[in-house]
């Protein structure tokens, strides 16, 4: 599955998280498992606390990080898919 620019992503409801100086810990309340995010992942996590399209998310991050847009899009997509596999984000077309 690939994310389209208009695909909407948002953090799932059954989780709680906290930020430790730019690194986040997320607790999935369904299974009690903790997940950790590095600073860039944490920035993504903050952005998807409200629904955003994948295109919007990518544009915000491209403006904030000095990185190739295609590479960033691919990395963010990977991250979102992994978060979705662990029921931490909801993805809707």
């Amino acid at each position: 599955m690939h994310l389209l620019d208009e695909t909407t992503v948002v953090a799932a409801r059954e989780q709680v998280s906290c930020d430790f100086g730019g690194e986040a810990a997320i607790l999935n309340l369904k299974n009690g498992i903790y997940y950790g995010l590095d600073p860039v992942g944490t920035r993504v996590w903050h952005l998807i606390q409200q629904p955003r399209t994948f295109g919007e998310l990518r544009n915000i991050l491209v403006s904030e990080y000095d990185v190739d847009a295609a590479r960033l899009g691919s990395d963010v997509e990977d991250l979102l898919m992994r978060l979705a596999e662990n029921d931490l984000v909801e993805i809707s077309a």
């Binding site: 709680v16 998280s17 906290c18 430790f20 810990a25 607790l27 309340l29 009690g32 903790y34």
Partner: peptide, 23 residues
């Protein structure tokens, strides 16, 4: 944070309220 969470006492009560409070 992870060290503290790893060393919480009583791993039998795992409802969402407790987990959230723990975090």
């Amino acid at each position: 944070f992870l060290e503290l969470v790893k060393n919480t006492f009583n791993r039998r009560i795992l409802d969402a309220d407790r987990l959230e409070r723990q975090l």
